[in-house]
Computed example of a mutant assay.
Amino acid sequence: MSDAATVQGNESRSAAGGRNPWLIAIVVSIATFMLVLDTSIANVALRNIAGSLAAGMDESTWVITTYLVANSVIIPVSGWLTSVVGRKRYYMICVATFTFASLLCGLAPNLPTLIAFRILQGLGGGGMAPSEQSILADTFPPEKRSQAFALYGIAVIVAPTVGPTIGGWLTDNFSWHW
């Protein structure tokens, strides 16, 4: 039997292998949710960040700007980095970098340090989106991709909607560090 016949048979060409592809879609969507949430959640806390770190409002906006610039810079390079490192490894590095940088942002003692950690966070987060979309495209067969990307899209739409509310609640009840 030829390889083409085997592929057309019962074997799946999904990157998920024997795993449930919807579990992969949910995990990827949760990471996307956190990434997009982080873009909007810090906006609400800018006044508190500025006050806490003895900075002006103009200076504190660099917390948002540097994150977005770093995020935008890494996206075009992600395809090349994926081919060099491997998609799964690159995605996991991005998730780990984003998560670790998020922790460091909460521990930042001053504005320059916070801005440096936000750059690192943006670099980690920027590489996630292209990788996630490739993972979804490889995990689902063409007839199911629209459903998978719809789940992904829900995370992208809901996160900036609830981000300011969550950011305000965390800032009011705890601290901007959260």
Rank of each mutant, 00 (worst) to 15 (best):
170 L>S: 07
76 P>D: 03
127 G>F: 01
95 V>T: 10
46 L>W: 01
8 Q>M: 09
18 G>Q: 13
160 P>T: 00
60 S>Q: 09
63 V>H: 04
138 D>T: 10
164 P>D: 11
80 W>E: 05
106 G>C: 01
68 L>F: 05
139 T>L: 10
157 I>H: 04
153 G>L: 04
115 I>F: 01
11 E>N: 12
4 A>M: 10
69 V>M: 02
51 G>C: 08
50 A>M: 04
116 A>S: 02
16 A>T: 10
146 S>A: 15
172 D>A: 13
100 F>E: 02
12 S>R: 07
143 E>H: 14
40 S>K: 12
171 T>L: 05
64 I>K: 01
89 R>I: 09
52 S>H: 08
25 A>G: 05
63 V>F: 07
138 D>Y: 06
54 A>D: 15
129 A>T: 15
59 E>L: 11
47 R>N: 09
9 G>F: 01
56 G>I: 09
82 T>M: 14
96 A>N: 05
107 L>V: 05
30 I>K: 12
2 S>R: 08
56 G>D: 14
118 R>E: 00
40 S>Q: 11
41 I>G: 00
9 G>A: 12
47 R>D: 09
93 I>V: 11
20 N>H: 07
103 L>Q: 04
114 L>K: 00
155 A>W: 00
150 A>T: 14
132 E>A: 15
16 A>C: 10
177 H>C: 03
133 Q>T: 13
10 N>M: 08
31 A>S: 13
103 L>S: 10
141 P>D: 15
126 G>Y: 00
156 V>P: 00
120 L>V: 03
164 P>F: 07
176 W>E: 06
44 V>F: 02
172 D>R: 12
65 T>G: 11
139 T>P: 05
17 G>D: 14
16 A>I: 05
122 G>C: 03
3 D>E: 15
67 Y>E: 00
30 I>S: 09
88 K>M: 11
47 R>P: 09
135 I>T: 04
45 A>N: 02
88 K>V: 11
11 E>R: 10
91 Y>F: 14
71 N>M: 09
78 S>Q: 02
76 P>S: 00
140 F>A: 13
106 G>I: 00
45 A>K: 03
4 A>K: 11
68 L>G: 13
16 A>V: 11
57 M>S: 15
170 L>V: 07
60 S>P: 11
89 R>G: 09
17 G>A: 11
170 L>E: 06
149 F>T: 14
113 T>C: 08
99 T>C: 03
157 I>V: 10
56 G>Q: 10
144 K>S: 14
49 I>Q: 06
4 A>F: 08
48 N>Y: 07
102 S>Y: 01
31 A>M: 13
125 G>P: 04
15 A>K: 10
52 S>M: 11
